[in-house]
């Protein structure tokens, strides 16, 4: 099976200059946990996931892991304050600039391997040679296809 048989082509996107809060609203409306970020030429420049945003909201000295645990600290409103700081900035400033990108003629085996081994992302962005967005492949889409096939559905 190839990527192009599974990918969703009408992907919801965010523009790199849109504020983070607007992007988060769009993700919520569309029920997405990850959204590709594109520029004016529809080139993929990165992705934003709910996890990416959350990572920016947690202070770096906690993310670094050197505190081991911080259950001794009271709720200091840090998360709220940090969220307010990033809500208005451009998507391009907090996006993950190196998402997992794949080509439409790659096999699903290689895509799933990359998802699990390298990125731990549930999504891969499908692009063409010019880095234009073609679609999205999600772990859920791949599993759906496998399920349908097991039930004697269409074969790609």
């Amino acid at each position: 099976m190839l990527v192009k048989t599974v990918m969703v082509t009408k992907a919801v996107t965010a523009h790199q200059d849109e504020p983070v809060a607007v992007v988060l609203d769009r993700m919520r409306e569309s029920g997405l946990r990850m959204i590709p970020v594109i520029n004016a030429d529809r080139n993929v420049v990165g992705v934003i996931s709910t996890y990416t945003v959350l990572e920016k909201v947690v202070p770096s000295y906690i993310v670094s892991g050197d505190l081991h645990q911080i259950s001794y600290a009271p709720d200091m409103g840090i998360l709220r304050r940090n969220y307010d700081e990033i809500a208005g900035i451009k998507a391009s400033e907090i996006m993950d600039e190196k998402p997992l990108t794949v080509h439409q003629d790659e096999s699903l085996l290689s895509v799933t391997a990359a998802m699990i081994t390298y990125t731990k992302h549930e999504y891969a962005v499908v692009i063409d040679e010019q880095h234009h967005l073609l679609g999205i492949v999600s772990a859920g889409d791949i599993l759906d296809r496998l399920k349908r096939k097991a039930q004697g559905g269409d074969d790609a």
Binding site: P59, Y61, I62, S64, D66, L67, I70, A73, P74, M76, I78
Partner: peptide, 14 residues
């Protein structure tokens, strides 16, 4: 300092 600096950042944040 690896142990104290992150706690310091947490406390100055508070």
């Amino acid at each position: 300092v690896l142990l104290i600096a992150p706690v310091t950042l947490l406390i100055t944040d508070a």
